[in-house]
Design a protein around this nucleic acid. Sequence first.
DNA 1: TAACTTTGACCGACCGTTCAATCAAAAAAA
DNA 2: TTTTTTTGATTGAACGGTCGGTCAAAGTTA
Lengths: 210, 210
Amino acid sequence: MSPRTPDQFEGIREEKKALIMNVALEHFSDHGFHATTINHIAKHAGISKGLMYNYFRSKEELLAAIINRSLSQIYTGFNPDRDSHLTEQEFELFIRKVFDMFRENRQFWRLIYRVMMQRGVYENLLSDQSSSYMVGDMPLKDFSADMMRLMTDYFIRKGEKEDADYDPITEMIMFSNTLKGFALTYIFAPEQYPDEYFNKTVDALIKKYR
Amino acid sequence: MSPRTPDQFEGIREEKKALIMNVALEHFSDHGFHATTINHIAKHAGISKGLMYNYFRSKEELLAAIINRSLSQIYTGFNPDRDSHLTEQEFELFIRKVFDMFRENRQFWRLIYRVMMQRGVYENLLSDQSSSYMVGDMPLKDFSADMMRLMTDYFIRKGEKEDADYDPITEMIMFSNTLKGFALTYIFAPEQYPDEYFNKTVDALIKKYR
DNA sequence: TAACTTTGACCGACCGTTCAATCAAAAAAA
DNA sequence: TTTTTTTGATTGAACGGTCGGTCAAAGTTA
């Protein structure tokens, strides 16, 4: 065997970090931040408690690493035109992508909700204080703001074709609340959503708001 | 001054318990269950840590007492016919009552969400394990099931007047998710809902689902 | 041997809970 | 009324336990 280059060492180290993060994600999302101990994570990752601190400086840093990794993973390839405006087809595609995102990253979203609720981060997640969270190379806050703007534009444009008492802002609020409520239920009680109703809900949402 | 009767003593004790519960509700709903210490609550209630245990046997019991009290308060006068079926007017009234409930008990609902998320109670809140929670004289589980049935009936009956691809279950899911999402946003970020949009949202919901 | 990884005993801080001690006021006795 | 006894609300030190984080030492590799 040839000696390993520094890069290969770095690769092994990153693999181990990833393993720890996966285990931690599982525990954090099931039991929340406080209830998960460093010891539990270490045991389940097959290493000692002390060694954890070779990879992450603190429990907090471990959490932040998980969140940033997942955010980047999730939003990679999740980039509807941010400059241009949404067409109806793009809007439909957007909804379907959002639902896929929930389906494929339920564990991560459970963590987000649990941690948010435990530490009042919900109010701060999109505010200035949480500027440490990055979506790729963009602060989460800016990313979200862009998404919001995109949606708002869509509903305003849509308003021009609707009747007089149509209010784009209200429509936007209704839409995002339905999404949020769906996310909450699906993430924490997915047994309420057999595939049939999962898809029917997506279709119904598109029909109602497109 | 005449000596106090036993009932008056009992009244004083109940007042003190209520005071403690109010303080605890504030802290639990702001910081969650784990992050709130008995000491904090005691300090803010103006008593010593030890005295807390004359009024409540444990932190858990204090939490349960708060939840039960609020549930009873909230659902008093919140009794749409549980046997009969909902008319359209009753449905509209129901929605408005639900929103009033959120508006008037935001602190309590914040506690519910926080505690649910911290301890996995979300999945269990309506299950057998949580049979200790009572709505008046009815287990919370049964109360919720009744509500669900009432709603489902309404959407099924409504379905008979709609077009062929109307699915009552999907409609029901959409409706309850919109409610849930609204609740979540309003409870944790009410600044996003100036009164104007609060009311507009209610109207929009009624228009969409009545 | 030298350089490193890994371990787990250990530390200090904290938290829910207990309990012996205190004391003001109510009740009983004088 | 005055004095003594009893009560029970109240306190805070102390306890047992947990947890995040540290570090000397054992193990491993080269």
